[in-house]
Design a binder for these strands. Structure first.
Lengths: 233, 233
DNA sequence: ACAAAAGTGTTTTCCATACACCCATGC
DNA sequence: GCATGGGTGTATGGAAAACACTTTTGT
């Protein structure tokens, strides 16, 4: 085994962000019309090139912050996309990330930065450039997988929320309805979900109890919870 | 949002392979001593640079084939590693892959290609260059996660195997023992695992029944199995 | 006869699912 | 008083987990 390299191994490295958000109770991604070549005018994910003095993770966060003005956003690497001809006329390896944006709280900032960026429901996407559709498909699968086992929902919920709100969110992401009583039973077993005692009267006559999420201190080997974390399906 | 780039976004793109195998009933990875700078003489994963005329996936496969002489090996992308200073003195973004190699059947080919490559148990690794230890940690977590839900075990088993052999393999990878009767009960529900009727007399006085794995034809929407696939934990 | 690995069932526990009615309130 | 969304409990089925002894045969 030998190692050698030359300019033949130098290539552009990019990041692309699949930014999920909720809009009108639909799961959406942030897209925009490219204002430059290649594929000017077509629909694209948000992306950019990685600079030599920043990590790939930082580049993804920079792209997201530049567009939304937000910094404390959940981001997760999805993987590298490295087909030779994924872009026409140049070789670009792209690392995709998915992000979760709490739209209802923050949509002002999103709209203000880029007039070209819009929320599009994932089930009615326009044709996209390059392999961006494939990236979204993978991100959606990853989101559905991860939200089942980790506290991702709370990235999409406001500080305080009703159980109905939380359930609707799951239903929107999964694409099918859940049983109300079973759902509340499982949430009831999660020690991180705390009843604030407050009531939200805006959504119904009766009013709904508002809950909040408090991250648990990471368990030490001695202080380990005896229950298995329950999943929502 | 603007896009621009220059040589400031051109960088080396590499692949690194975490090649798992079984040796003396221990889970091992293939390492080798670097024969070139940087870090000549230190322990490293197998890797190489991606050429402009090959996809990242192809580069990973080429590296693996060059070293082992094998082509039909299970490989899976783990993700991109993109810290600025993960290598000294140059910027390299690396995409890591993990691979499963059936050592007992194929160790001849592995040894013959590179004298410097050796199997090292994952629980007694030497210090490694760059972020290779982190890559192995992530690959191991991914392997343990994936082997629970997908037919990955069979990539590490020979054509025919006893149930004890299969169970030992799971125990080696998980790092803890499994209940024999529960294990055999679950394997018994897998239609892909077929009793060949043959007996292996080499491992015991009594002899063990040999099984084999037959991939099921992918279920069509009509011809769907009614049972959930069972997991091994 | 005994060592060494192969093989075999039952019970219990827990989690997921299915399912329908009363409550509080603003209008 | 009625419409609207909020809230509640029980019964069933299936999978996972715990658990110990008999079988075969080469030496």
């Amino acid at each position: 085994m030998q190692e050698y390299y030359s300019d033949n191994s130098m290539m552009l490295v990019a990041v692309d962000c699949i930014i999920f958000g909720l809009k009108d109770n639909r799961l959406c991604v942030l897209l925009y019309r490219r204002g430059f070549e290649p594929c000017k005018g077509e629909w694209s994910l948000l992306g950019g090139f990685v600079n030599k003095n920043e990590s790939v993770d930082s580049a993804a966060r920079r792209v997201l912050t530049t567009l939304t003005g937000l910094n404390d956003v959940y981001m997760q690497q999805l993987g590298a996309f490295g087909a030779v001809n994924r872009e026409p006329d140049r070789r670009v390896v792209s690392v995709a990330y998915y992000a979760l944006l709490n739209v209802s709280e923050r949509n002002t900032s999103v709209g203000s930065v880029s007039d070209n960026a819009v929320w599009v429901a994932v089930d009615s996407l326009p044709p996209l450039v390059f392999d961006h559709q494939e990236m979204i498909d993978m991100a959606l699968a990853a989101l559905r997988r991860d939200i089942k086992a980790t506290p991702l929902v709370f990235e999409l919920l406001p500080e305080m929320f009703s159980l109905t709100h939380m359930q609707t969110l799951y239903e929107t992401i999964y694409g099918y309805p859940l049983d109300k009583r079973n759902f509340r039973k499982r949430v009831g077993t999660m020690p991180e979900v705390i009843d604030t005692g407050l009531i939200d009267k805006t959504g119904s006559r009766r009013g709904a109890r508002l809950f909040t999420y408090r991250k648990q201190s990471p368990p030490t080997p001695e202080n380990r919870p005896s229950h298995k974390p329950s999943t929502i399906s």
